[in-house]
Write a protein that binds this DNA or RNA. Structure first.
Lengths: 280, 280
DNA sequence: ACGCATCTCTTTACGCTGTAAGGATACCAG
DNA sequence: CTGGTATCCTTACAGCGTAAAGAGATGCGT
């Protein structure tokens, strides 16, 4: 057997990502029976990351949760970064893949974005996984397929469509990222949100007493907008103000983008031929 | 002097962020002359992060660059995370604060977004700084003020305006994040982009030969869009395809959002009273 | 049934991180 | 000159990912 330098790794990680239930190697091998398997390790990793955040995810942490040492994991998984990739693709399976487009693409995409938002808040650590070389697991593709299916028939030309989707993805991701960061700030630092802001604004007036002169537009906006936000938030009150505002900004931004898409669809299907691209 | 638990830190970091050239303590103090100062340390930190990335930014790295040990820095800066905050606010000063709105807000915002994009590509590590509790330094406020000044007069109501701005910020951030991650992937892993993708797609056909059946919409889109991207990219060719596409998706997404804003402005100034909020 | 190849899992170790603690040295006010 | 204070260094600790080597269990070929 020939092994090319650096290829064994890629091969192994792909086979881990795409492995099916059977299709494994020989049923009986020499050596002690494995008392662990990749799925247990992935599940435990997800549990650790969900409960204590990405920073607390260490090989030792996962290992001891399974009653094993850190090094024992290396029998099943080539490295920590591979484990994270596997965890990523694993949780991605939670996302729905079917959306009702009978009322048009817009409600479907909105529902999709809401689900993605909830998903990110459920697994905030996913937002910490680098997108540089995407994981390319089955569930990553399934997620993409879902969006392409919804948006494929609206009449955007392929290249444009792909860019719109990329923008949509990154928008959702970015908004969810700040939301989760806000949520994590309080437990991590031990200082509750309100206290922190109160303290900071007190120090602001001390260190930057000329704030209103230096940043007039900002000062004007803050005084009016904060007031409006307060009175508006009176109805809800479940989550913190910051989180509520994050959610609200997400909705607003999403609507802006979808308005833009609608406008693009109108001009596109006017000017160019309206091919029902995507689903055959 | 009374020191409340946990407050000394906040006070110190605010004074570091907002300190002005003079206004420092007594000119002559006992003890050896400081051979370093906060600005040198910040500048060195920025240099390290720019050149080698956030992962390579360690107290030891900064220290030895200054011909000192890691611990020497703790005389000037309370902790690494404070240093990162200071670095963040420092580089933020590079962003322009004045934009020509004589041709309307849209070209101004577009120029602003382009500058932000270039800024993030120049200092990718900034995207790694948590937004949970924003740095609240002078330059962070200046950046916000800039956008509010541009968008303050278009006739969005304050609360809506704030959310639009939040969405805009996160969109730019998110798009820039993937772009920088792509750019860093090749040097970090040592595998050039094309090789990686070639290898991956070869493995894809091996491990998921049923790809086209499982993800029909995706397969259709890829075959048409990739072709279009290739022929379109033939003109340029400076940056890699991935990076080019990231930039393109950024433009497309931004235009979608701005289209949405235009629509919102039209309906807002029709229905509600058009107050020239913001700049007085 | 035996020996051996092979597999799982543990122990130990290395270099890296942020930073707490304590000591050496340089400097200024009295 | 002396005492107090500030700068800076050395040492040390707990944590990280993982390389290397070895212990023990297991199935196969003989």
């Amino acid at each position: 057997m020939v092994v090319f330098a650096g290829q064994g790794d890629a091969r192994r990680s792909m086979s881990l990502l795409w492995r099916s239930a059977e299709s494994e190697g020989p049923a009986s091998k020499p050596g002690p029976k494995p008392r662990l398997d990749v799925d247990m390790i992935i599940a435990t990793g997800v549990a650790v990351a969900d409960e204590q955040g990405m920073a607390a995810l260490s090989m030792r942490a996962v290992g001891t949760r399974l009653g094993r040492t850190a090094m024992a994991l290396y029998t099943y998984v080539p490295s920590k970064s591979e484990l994270v990739d596997l965890m990523h693709d694993r949780v991605l399976a939670e996302l729905p893949t079917e959306y009702d487009t009978s009322a048009g693409w817009r409600p479907a995409i909105t529902a999709w974005a809401d689900d993605a938002w909830a998903f990110y808040l459920r697994h905030p650590w996913v937002l910490q996984v680098s997108q540089a070389r995407p994981v390319l697991g089955p569930n990553e593709y399934a997620r993409l397929e879902t969006v392409v299916r919804i948006l494929g028939g609206v009449g955007l030309e392929p290249l444009h469509l792909r860019r719109v989707i990329a923008a949509l993805f990154q928008f959702v991701r970015g908004m969810a990222l700040v939301a989760t960061e806000h949520r994590q700030a309080a437990p991590e630092t031990g200082v509750p949100d309100e206290e922190w802001w109160a303290q900071r604004s007190a120090l602001m007036t001390e260190f930057a007493p000329d704030f209103a002169e230096r940043f007039p537009a900002l000062a004007a906006l803050e005084s009016t907008a904060s007031l409006a936000a307060m009175t508006e938030a009176e109805a809800g009150g479940a989550a913190s103000h910051m989180e509520q505002e994050g959610r609200e900004a997400f909705r607003v931004g999403l609507d802006l983008i979808l308005d833009g898409v609608e406008a693009a669809v109108r001009t596109d299907s006017d000017g160019t031929l309206h091919a029902s691209a995507g689903t055959p």
